[in-house]
Simulated assay, not measured.
Amino acid sequence: MPDPKVVLVRHPFFAGIDPSISETLAECAHEVSFPAGRFLAREGEPASGFLLLECGTVALELHRPGRMPIVLETLHEGELVGTSWVIPPYRWSCDVRALDPVRAIVVDARCLRGKSESDPKLGYELLKRFLPLFVQRLEAVRLQLLDVYGETPT
């Protein structure tokens, strides 16, 4: 298994990060893998961290009883899965399903929140990296809603 610190440093989400911060992140990280079809997270479950995809593809889905789920976004190698760990109540806002075998580094939220509270530099660096991701994901949902609820030609 690769060293989480090495994966963190070369992952696009943390490109150019201060080495001391990558050391701290690595203290909260470990590698995980999931087979195709497995749910990595379910809507409403505690969001205990985020994942840095090393390989594989996941779908962010909204469950609809009696209907097929809505795929909000598909994420691939080099992307980050999970922002719900940042803001209380720390619950997943959608389902996350592996579309093919996934290998990732998971960063434990409780560990990282604790370290961020005691190190404002770390907290600010994470804020600068996660806020654009929040905006990007919100825009993806907005575009998906436009597609789902768009007008039909007459």
Score class of each variant (00 low, 15 high):
L72G: 09
L112V: 07
G44E: 04
I105T: 05
G49W: 11
V71D: 02
A109K: 10
K115D: 02
P101K: 03
S93L: 14
L75P: 00
L60V: 15
P46I: 07
G82N: 10
T57D: 11
I70E: 07
C55N: 09
R97I: 02
A104Y: 08
P69M: 03
M68W: 08
C28K: 12
L75G: 04
L60P: 00
G66K: 04
R110Y: 04
H30D: 02
P46F: 10
E117V: 06
P88T: 08
L112M: 08
G37P: 06
S48K: 13
A109P: 00
L80N: 04
V32W: 03
S22W: 09
S118H: 05
V107E: 01
S22K: 09
T57A: 05
S84K: 09
A109V: 07
E45G: 08
L62K: 15
R103F: 02
A15M: 02
R42Y: 02
V32M: 13
G56H: 05
V86S: 00
R64I: 15
F34M: 12
G16M: 06
A47M: 03
P65Y: 05
G82Y: 04
I87A: 12
I105S: 00
V106T: 13
S118L: 12
G66M: 09
L126V: 07
L80V: 14
A109S: 11
Y124D: 10
A41F: 00
L72Q: 08
T24E: 13
D95I: 01
G82T: 09
P69R: 10
L126Y: 10
Y90H: 15
G49E: 03
S48H: 08
T83K: 05
E43W: 01
K121H: 09
V58D: 03
V32D: 03
D18G: 10
A29C: 06
E125V: 07
S93E: 14
E77V: 10
A109W: 07
I21F: 11
Y124W: 12
K121D: 08
E77P: 07
R67K: 07
A26C: 06
R110K: 13
D119R: 15
A104H: 09
A98C: 12
I17A: 14
W92R: 13
R113D: 01
R42Q: 11
K115L: 10
L52A: 14
E125Y: 02
R42W: 00
Y90G: 12
V86K: 03
S22I: 07
T24D: 11
G123V: 02
S22D: 02
G56N: 06
G123H: 05
L112N: 06
E73H: 11
C55K: 13
P69A: 11
A26L: 05
E117R: 10
D119V: 05
D108P: 02
L127D: 01
L126R: 08
G56S: 05
E31M: 14
S118T: 15
E125K: 03
Y90D: 04
T83M: 11
R64M: 14
G56E: 08
I70R: 11
L72R: 02
P35E: 13
R67G: 00
E31Q: 13
R113S: 04
C94G: 04
L25T: 06
P88I: 03
A109G: 12
E43K: 15
P35Y: 03
W85L: 14
F50G: 08
F39G: 04
A47S: 14
S22M: 06
C55D: 04
E27W: 03
A109F: 03
K115R: 15
D100Q: 09
R42H: 12
E117T: 04
